[in-house]
């Protein structure tokens, strides 16, 4: 009984108040000052991702669909954070990210990739992700245009090697994994990502409350 009281005392201390940061400022430490992503941390651009997809991925991390593989150190970092957040805090974090003003990102072109080959490969992607990589909420497919190319490469590899899409209750991940496995090798991944990189900027995101 004393112990429970002690825990309560600790939780109500000012120290713990520090742990509950207003407006989920944790996000920007890794994902960059405008949630635009940070290659040094391998943290993706969140600014281009719609609310429903961000929420879906929080759930994916909490469900162990992402961050499960022993050597996926970056996935595990995000999973550790997602595991500390309840639904209300997730909503708060997403709202916080939405308030960031977008920043322009420099275009980096992969000169060793074959964009024409990438265009052919992308035909199987566009059914879900859209001809312009704008994504499709009904199909739970995120926008791709505007995402960092290194992150797209990293995630296609993650789907291919089973870090993502490898669990029976992760149906959308499983679908994506099949497509990723159809990409023959690293060059094919580089080519399709180079094509996505070349897509014109997408329309401003349509905010949904889904």
């Amino acid at each position: 009984m004393n112990k429970i009281w002690l825990v309560f005392m600790l939780l109500s201390s000012t120290a713990l108040a520090d742990s509950k940061q207003p407006d989920a400022r944790y996000c920007l430490v890794c994902h960059g000052s405008a949630a635009q992503g940070n290659v040094a941390i391998k943290a993706p651009n969140l600014a281009i991702l719609p609310d429903w997809y961000l929420r879906q991925q929080f759930i994916a991390f909490r469900n162990n669909w992402r961050g499960n593989a022993a050597d996926d150190a970056h996935g595990k970092e995000m999973q550790a954070v997602a595991n500390t957040m309840n639904d209300a805090e997730i909503d708060q974090a997403i709202a916080f990210i939405r308030r960031r003003a977008p920043v322009k990102l420099p275009i980096s072109v992969n000169t060793t990739a074959d964009i024409q080959h990438g265009r052919q490969l992308y035909q199987q992607c566009q059914a879900c992700h859209g001809a312009n990589g704008e994504g499709n909420a009904q199909l739970h497919a995120p926008p791709l245009a505007g995402q960092h190319n290194w992150y797209l490469v990293q995630q296609l590899s993650a789907f291919k090697n089973g870090w993502r899409g490898n669990q029976s209750d992760d149906s959308y991940g499983q679908i994506m994994r099949q497509f990723a496995q159809s990409l023959a090798n690293d060059q094919a991944i580089a080519d399709v990502v180079a094509y996505i990189d070349s897509l014109p900027p997408t329309q401003p995101l349509v905010r949904t409350t889904q």
Binding site: L28, C30, G32, S33, A34, N38, A40, I41, V103, P106
Partner: peptide, 25 residues
Amino acid sequence: PAQLVSGIESNLPADYVAIMRQLGR
């Protein structure tokens, strides 16, 4: 830490930030 400066919006020279991005954690 340089790996965090890499994620902060800035007009720092590109070659300067490029080195920060190559530093390991």
